[in-house]
Design a protein around this nucleic acid. Sequence first.
DNA 1: CTTCGACATTTGGCATTCCAAATGCCAATA
DNA 2: TATTGGCATTTGGAATGCCAAATGTCGAAG
Lengths: 230, 230
Amino acid sequence: MSNSDQFSIKPIVASSSLRTLAYEALKSAITNMDLYGRPDEVRLDERKLSQDLGVSRTPVREALTVLEQEGFVRSEARRGIFVIKKTKAEIVGMIHAWAALESMAARLACQRASDAQLQSLRTEFPEFYEGRPAEHLDEYSDANIRFHQKIISLGQCEAIASLSSNLLMHVRGIRNTALRQGERAESSIREHVAIIKALEAREAELAERLVREHGLGLARHVDTYGHYLD
Amino acid sequence: MSNSDQFSIKPIVASSSLRTLAYEALKSAITNMDLYGRPDEVRLDERKLSQDLGVSRTPVREALTVLEQEGFVRSEARRGIFVIKKTKAEIVGMIHAWAALESMAARLACQRASDAQLQSLRTEFPEFYEGRPAEHLDEYSDANIRFHQKIISLGQCEAIASLSSNLLMHVRGIRNTALRQGERAESSIREHVAIIKALEAREAELAERLVREHGLGLARHVDTYGHYLD
DNA sequence: CTTCGACATTTGGCATTCCAAATGCCAATA
DNA sequence: TATTGGCATTTGGAATGCCAAATGTCGAAG
């Protein structure tokens, strides 16, 4: 027997390790940095970073190892650690991978998600039904990201979710700037609505195809208009 | 000017870092380990590993950090480092992700690969045209893996290739054992031949669909017959 | 015999130190 | 002036030492 039901064990504090803290700090610093503004490569100094963060080099190095794994930085022995500036081709490739994963998630969502979950799409994203997105592009950008994340979560597949979240980190910036070019926002919304309808109807093949084509459209768009990269 | 044409500069030696060596050693040890035989969790000891490998704890720790990132081990502070035993659901999820990525690669291959590359499939995998795979299952297992890697490489998308290679590490064992159950090998070969034909004909939608269904079939198979996991 | 707590041990996290390779500067030299 | 050789500096890689948390052990107390 146990008394555990007497106490609502708020339990663990378990504050993150310094490595995790350093990782968070560095990642947010990197993803918020305007990489494509300056032409020169950005170099990171282990010793300077550990001074600024107030910790030793060890947790910083471990954090950098993770970031290297994720493709954010590249470490050259005795040369330095550089923030990776992704080329247009690499971005397009990531969008292709994203499209593949998200379309599979849409298929799985049709099989696995509950009716309530599928119907919640319509209520969670009212922006898509209120036209004129050009007037609130910022809010819409957020909704856009959340929408795609929602589809992935409905797929209930851990592997797909974690791979996608990694890709999102790299592509987040692009998605939003792409929205502001041409008539992306309007057509994007139309496609979102079609996707929602397919999901609600549990038409797996259709939903899968619509999501894939939506992603491929973004890839084409970045490929033709993304010259400001590289 | 330079004399460099006088010497055939064999150039760079650049032997790998100890961290990389430790990583390779540990990964091969883990992937070759029969995880699902024993019921208890496998624990790794930093100090023992560094002794066995003849290096200090630092590169071992860095290698373990990478392996943790990739989902091979889990590190609990002051508890130990444990080899992760994936559940059946996780394996099935990875196969779903794999199917999504590979089917997108097939689509891209139809658009990007050269005629020679596409036709090389038929000559590179003669096993598929020689019937009776049951007689040489081991060789066929290798060909099976190589075939799917080949499709992915034909897609010419770095992001898809690197994500897939990670997934393959986790699923490699399963693919081969699944072949030996039921009539998987025969039907698998038929599907491979159909995929090759679709690729040769550059029928992107068809190739994409066939690859996806092939992968989904494996996922279903593991889901129903993979009770020996978890 | 059971329970409990003090203590030794184990273990990963972190800090510090040392090292070798690469680079840059600068003087010596042709 | 242009080039070269060496030395100081920088920088990541690796080794080592220390620490706190967690665990196991074992004996004393009930």
